[in-house]
Design a protein around this nucleic acid. Structure first.
Length: 420
RNA sequence: GUGGCUGUGGCCUAAAUGGUUAAGGCUCCUGACUGUGACUCAGGCAACUGUGGGUUCAAGUCCCACCAGUCACCCCA
């Protein structure tokens, strides 16, 4: 027999892991609700072109990390590598521009990227994502940053910090890139081979090269914030003023750039300690050109995405307790075939009365009670010949071991009392 | 895609310089005078030692390849 294994970079989220996931998703939903974000769910796959145009040809995600294929109808399909492009497609397609602006949306679910897996990084990964569409005021940037922050605060993460930068816009970015290239050309012999390629393909990325030899060149490189146009500079200044007013700590990181083409003006990350090489737990920014690029009316937008695996990893690393789901409090055990039939009727009866209840499937009374214990039942109901003859059940308190006979008519009340 | 490290039952771990039927713990199941859990005790299920080659009289132990995991790079959440 062949042994089947999960594909590389995927994971089974086992029952014992679920409380962590539930906790993260519950916090996301709660904070999103408090900020007035409505949930939107979009397909897990889209026409490839949505991502090719939206995320941008030339980005690593599009060029080498997408799960793309032709379906049986010959359509070019891609498993979503991120949320934003698909959400904007949905915004346009469903005429959501008629909704009162700004439009605030959030999503959670799996996305897919063909990468080499490592800690907190998978090929099928889960993200939560929030977007504000139709507002160019930096207040929208602020609110996106705040909702991201508050989710992690609600999760009780320690050592959080904002990293902030501006990447300019189509008006001013090309000019900056020329200055950057000019700087690098004068130091061409000092930089690594990767950066030589990046300079050509995705020049902003040279700024976050981690190689030792490139650090002096990066340190001396022109800063984009010195080259942005008045519009971008004002936007950036206003955002910083908001953050200052709130006393929110942030670090201007001139080397912070994003790997996706659609970002304009604001880019930010939330950092946290404790998950190895990936210090960023969340990243996002403004994408004022994206909706137009995808065929909609020119509309500004700003958003962020965060990996749930990393959040779960951090919950564990910081030993943060998560709520455990309660197990059904009642367990029904029985002795003999006749009693089994009574037990089944009782099970249905208790479910209808709104109690969580489980029934033994087989085994001696001894092993049935063992099951009750293992499953965390607080009360066991015992049914045998004696109970049938008396028209009742024996109710056993698992913690104290006390037992009493209860007539069927009083059972619901008796259970109710015991569970208070 | 690149490099380092690792790979023994579901989980954790043991098998001296290569040498008899791969050992123990946890979990799970069963039982301890037969209608009763948790503790204890006894027993049981379960591994062709990641896969495939090679060296050797003999390999879980050595060599090679592949696969997987992990750490870092790349990239990103």
């Amino acid at each position: 027999m062949v042994k089947f294994t999960r594909p590389t970079g995927t994971q089974d989220i086992l029952p014992e892991e679920q409380p962590y996931w539930d906790h993260v998703l519950a916090c996301v939903a709660a904070v999103a609700r408090d900020y007035g974000f409505a949930r939107i769910d979009i397909p897990i796959f889209e026409t490839t072109e949505v991502f090719a145009r939206g995320v941008g040809a030339g980005t690593d995600i599009v060029d080498k990390e997408m799960y793309s294929f032709k379906d049986k109808g010959g359509n070019d399909i891609t498993l979503r590598p991120e949320f934003t492009a698909g959400v904007m497609r949905a915004y346009i397609e469903n005429g959501m521009h008629v909704l009162p602006k700004p439009i605030k949306l959030y999503s959670t679910g799996p996305v897919f990227r063909y990468e080499r897996p490592q800690a907190g990084r998978y090929r099928q990964l889960y993200q939560f994502n929030a977007e504000i569409i139709g507002e160019q005021n930096p207040l929208a940037d602020l609110e996106i940053m705040l909702i991201a922050w508050d989710i992690y605060a609600k999760l009780e993460f320690a050592n959080l910090s904002f990293q902030l930068n501006t990447t300019g816009c189509p008006v001013c970015r090309p000019g900056y890139i020329e200055h950057l290239r000019a700087h690098y050309r004068t130091h061409y012999s000092q930089i690594c081979d990767d950066c030589k390629l990046r300079l050509d393909k995705n020049p902003l990325r040279v700024l976050d090269c981690k190689r030792e030899q490139c650090q002096p060149v990066i340190a001396a490189a022109p800063k984009i914030s010195d080259y942005v146009c008045d519009d971008c500079a004002t936007h950036f200044a206003d955002l910083r003023t908001y953050l200052d007013d709130l006393g929110k700590p942030y670090t201007i990181n001139h080397r912070l750039v994003r790997g996706l083409d659609y970002y304009t003006k604001t880019v930010f990350e939330v950092w946290a300690e404790g998950i190895g090489a990936q210090s960023a737990v969340c990243g996002g920014g403004r994408y004022d050109g994206l909706i137009e690029l995808l065929g909609g009316a020119p509309t500004p937008g700003v958003g962020f995405a965060a990996g749930i695996e990393r959040a779960v990893l951090l919950l564990k690393a910081q030993n943060i307790p998560v709520p455990l789901p309660p197990s059904p409090p009642v367990f029904i055990a029985y002795l003999g075939d006749a009693a089994r039939r009574h037990a089944v009727r009782l099970l249905v009866h208790l479910h209808q009365a709104g109690f969580g209840a489980q029934i033994a499937m087989s085994g001696s009374l001894k092993s049935q009670l063992r099951q009750a214990d293992k499953r965390g039942a607080r009360l066991a109901l015992l049914i045998g010949e004696d109970e049938i003859a008396q028209g009742g059940v024996t109710l056993r308190d698992m913690a104290s071991g006390e037992q009493e006979s209860v007539p069927l008519g009083n059972l619901v009340d008796a259970i109710q009392q015991r569970l208070v």
